[in-house]
Design a protein around this nucleic acid. Structure first.
Length: 362
DNA sequence: AAGACGGGGAG
DNA sequence: CTCCCAGTCTT
């Protein structure tokens, strides 16, 4: 069956007008007060939507407030140093979001005179602005009807309309976008899209939805048939690969600590860390030799002070934190440097390595 | 289409 | 501990 045909089929016998009205009314009454809802400034909406990708509201709030203080306008962000932006993003995760956002804001400043484009093509072509974020900015900042389908929306609509497609598939997202195009309010697309997401966050939650409090319960096919907790359908993810490392706390005779900047692409790009020995390639007994080859320093491996397990979405680092002292030699490494412990806070560190901070001698 | 890309909260 | 959450880019 073609997608448009399916959309028509699914929406047959569904009271769109009444559903829209109930959803929007509820959103206007019950929406949370959030910093990015203070006004419709497209730049604020944009920053908030990028931060909210894969990240819960409570986590984002302090980051958003600090970010807007530090980079209040597209100009301010465009002119900032990338390390400064990463520092403001430190701990939020998915750091390419920060890099892409600054890249895109620089394009807005140079190509669009600093005005976030309201044209779907132009907006969607900016780095880091995918189908969801494009729809969110268009509807919330510019009152333009465009679907903003995130995980909340797929969960809510899969239940309301009893759609059993696997939401981890790209085809499911496209189906929900087509459905939203038919359902969305032309008068108030902002409240419609936000209402859908707010409902997913506050009422139509993943594990135990509060159907008794739901403002659109009478429209919900899953509730009607008692299958709300079976939806949405999602394929289970496979488990992460474990990688063992030694994390080296190297301090010289002045008490300075050795840190290095990660590569500019890939995992935790451009963030800083303590040297890590990949135990899959280097044997325990060969560490001092390996270290001399990599950093040009003769060192003495000391005591083990902590085990850190850090889980990413696709892999697991199992790190043993080891204290190391420098015996002799000169540091010879492109991206590594010794710094005083009190200056550590100037550098963006991933949370995995922040866990080792307390073990620095100071 | 599948994998890379973080971190936090609930139970 | 284990499980759950989930947009965009790259390959």
């Amino acid at each position: 069956m073609k997608r448009t045909e399916r959309v028509n089929n699914i929406l047959k016998n569904f009271d769109k007008k009444s559903y829209r009205k109930d959803l929007i009314h509820w959103f206007k009454e019950e929406q949370r007060i959030l910093p990015w809802r203070e006004n419709q400034d497209p730049y604020r909406v944009w920053v908030s939507e990028i931060m909210l990708q894969q990240t819960r509201v409570d986590t984002v709030i302090p980051y958003f407030n600090h970010f807007m203080d530090k980079f209040p306008t597209p100009d301010a962000l465009a002119q900032a140093d990338e390390q400064e932006v990463l520092k403001a993003w430190e701990g939020l995760g998915y750091y390419s979001r920060a890099r892409n956002l600054q890249n895109a804001v620089r394009e807005v400043v140079s190509e669009y005179d600093g005005v976030v484009p309201a044209d779907p093509e132009e907006l969607g072509s900016l780095k880091g602005v995918g189908p969801y974020t494009r729809g969110a900015i268009l509807s919330i900042a510019y009152d333009i009807p465009d679907p903003a389908v995130d995980g909340n929306v797929m969960r809510v609509l899969s239940r309301i309309l009893r759609v059993e497609d696997d939401i981890s598939k790209q085809s499911a997202r496209k189906l929900f976008e087509e459905l939203v195009k038919e359902l969305i309010s032309e008068e108030d697309p902002s409240s419609f899209n936000q209402g859908l997401m707010e409902l997913g966050a506050l009422v139509c939650t993943p594990k135990t939805p509060s159907c008794m409090l739901c403002p659109v319960q009478e429209h919900c096919r899953a509730f009607d048939e008692g299958v709300e907790t079976e939806l949405p359908v999602k394929a289970s993810k496979k488990k992460q690969k474990k990688s063992p490392y030694l994390l080296l706390l190297v301090q010289n005779e002045k008490g300075e600590v050795l840190i290095e900047q990660r590569p500019d692409t890939g995992l935790l790009a451009s963030l800083w860390q303590y040297p890590m020995v990949p135990l899959e390639d280097v044997g325990q007994e060969a560490v001092e030799n390996w270290f001399y080859g990599e950093y040009g320093l003769k060192v003495k491996v000391g005591e083990s002070v902590k085990r850190i397990k850090h889980v990413f979405s696709h892999l697991i680092w199992e790190m043993e934190v080891i204290k190391v002292t420098v015996k002799e030699g000169t540091l010879d490494h492109e991206r590594a440097t010794f710094i005083a412990p009190e200056n550590m806070e100037d550098f963006p560190f991933p949370v995995s390595h922040q866990k080792a901070h307390p073990y620095i001698n100071r």
